[in-house]
Amino acid sequence: MKAEEGTAAYWRKLLGLDEPGNPALFKLKPVWQAGLRPAFYHLLGLIFRSYCPVKVVGLENLPPRPPYIIAANHASSMDFAVVAWAMGKRREELFALTTKLFYDIAFTRFWIKLAANAVRIDTVADFFPALRAAAKVLLAGKAVYINPEGTRSVNGAILPFRPGVGLLSIETSVPIIPVYLKDTWKVLRPGSILPRPARIEVRFDRPLDPEAYRLNGGPAYDGYKALTEELRQRIVALSSS
């Protein structure tokens, strides 16, 4: 047996996958959120049907129930809200990881929690807290929203993907739904506050099954990387379909 073989166990330990989950953790939602969120998305819908019309394609590709990972390209701060709006009532099963830089400011936290089931993460320290938080969401039977580029594209071009999404999918055995967001960057660019009118599209692709990428014995990373690359190819294909 080669030295590199069987590294998946170390990854599982780092992700805390063998620790007991706590589904109750993700069921709690303050009354104000439960009351205001539908109103927020209703108002958003008025904008998404007129000022910047959103076309939704392939929503039937969502698995019948969570857990799953929504992996979308990232070009605007409105991306999560667009996907959540497109998902209708099923947005309630979707969780977003939110950096403490925004979560710890009362004003932005209010808006984040209004729009999303948010999990606070400390991305400044390193990336494992984020992956662990995402794993906990999935182990609790929920869905998690991830931008595999790790940063925003300034012109809509799809950037290279970081392989953490592949790791998460393979080690939790949860499928990835590739999502392409078209032209959200034209509506709300980095640094701008007021949206500009433009047509947006959200394209959901069929689920990507991680099992074919699980390497039995080899360096686990190679499987994570291969799955992530396939995910990127799927989103690139969605962008030109």
Binding site: T7, Y10, W11, D126, R162, P163, P219, A220
Partner: peptide
């Protein structure tokens, strides 16, 4: 990348 760094440590 960061994950490949961890793969080295895992090995």
């Amino acid at each position: 990348d960061s994950l490949l760094g961890v793969e080295i440590i895992a090995s």
